[in-house]
Amino acid sequence: MQLERCGWAMNDAVEQAYHDNEWGVPSRDEHYLFEMLNLEGAQAGLSWRLILNKRAAYKDAFHKFDPDKCAMMTDKELEHIRETAAIVKNKLKIGGVRKNAIAFLKVQEEFGSFANYIWGYADGKPIINHWTDMSQMPTKNALSEQISKDLKKRGFIFVGPVIIYSYLQAIGMIDDHVVTCPYHTENR
């Protein structure tokens, strides 16, 4: 069997690095979980490549996605970010980082960590799919719909089921590498 990287990550070095080193790799790191939640929300309606290329600017603007610091950001700070940072200028998405930080901290308090909360949906184990072609991969599923609904109830925004499905892939809770990809869990 010829192993070849997933088709979406074949043309751009930034996407390839993300695909090879992060996508589908299980993470329980709180800062990473918060970062990816917000980057996936920022991507809504845009390309993932655009967000990856602005990732460093997002980290600079939002205190390396430290949820404690993001929760305390003022309206003035958020407006300054909108005016000056090299990120997507959508006011709701920028303000969403603070809203999500506040909700994230509440989840940490309730569950001991956000990782405990999110990974609890999968009994702490990654869901490994066995797609032979990228066209088989869904954009959402029952799990992403369930998590999306609960996150919204908890005060998170930009967490629709499609965004959450992408998020679950990003944090490695779902491995959607095609089976012929060298980065699929069973090929690593």
Score class of each variant (00 low, 15 high):
17 A>Y: 09
175 D>T: 10
99 K>E: 11
106 K>W: 10
151 L>S: 05
93 K>T: 02
45 G>T: 02
87 I>Q: 04
8 W>G: 07
86 A>T: 12
133 D>I: 11
32 Y>P: 00
115 A>M: 00
151 L>P: 02
185 T>C: 05
109 E>P: 00
47 S>H: 06
127 I>K: 05
5 R>W: 09
133 D>S: 12
101 A>R: 00
24 G>Q: 09
143 L>C: 11
113 S>Y: 03
160 G>D: 10
108 Q>H: 05
38 N>R: 04
32 Y>H: 08
9 A>P: 04
110 E>P: 00
129 N>D: 10
60 D>C: 12
154 R>S: 03
13 A>Y: 08
112 G>E: 06
155 G>S: 05
159 V>M: 00
110 E>Q: 15
140 K>H: 14
23 W>I: 12
169 Q>M: 08
6 C>Y: 12
103 A>H: 08
150 D>W: 03
144 S>L: 06
88 V>P: 02
130 H>V: 05
98 R>P: 01
182 P>T: 04
25 V>I: 15
31 H>P: 01
38 N>I: 04
85 A>I: 07
123 D>L: 00
20 D>F: 12
67 P>N: 11
54 K>M: 08
134 M>V: 15
126 P>H: 09
172 G>E: 06
71 A>S: 15
132 T>D: 11
87 I>V: 15
66 D>A: 08
22 E>D: 14
26 P>Y: 00
60 D>T: 00
130 H>C: 11
105 L>C: 11
151 L>F: 04
95 G>Q: 14
71 A>M: 02
126 P>C: 04
38 N>C: 11
87 I>A: 11
77 E>K: 07
164 I>Q: 01
77 E>T: 08
84 T>I: 07
71 A>I: 01
62 F>A: 09
149 K>F: 07
117 Y>A: 14
158 F>I: 03
119 W>H: 10
185 T>P: 01
174 I>P: 05
161 P>S: 14
169 Q>V: 15
170 A>T: 14
160 G>R: 03
181 C>E: 12
21 N>V: 01
60 D>I: 01
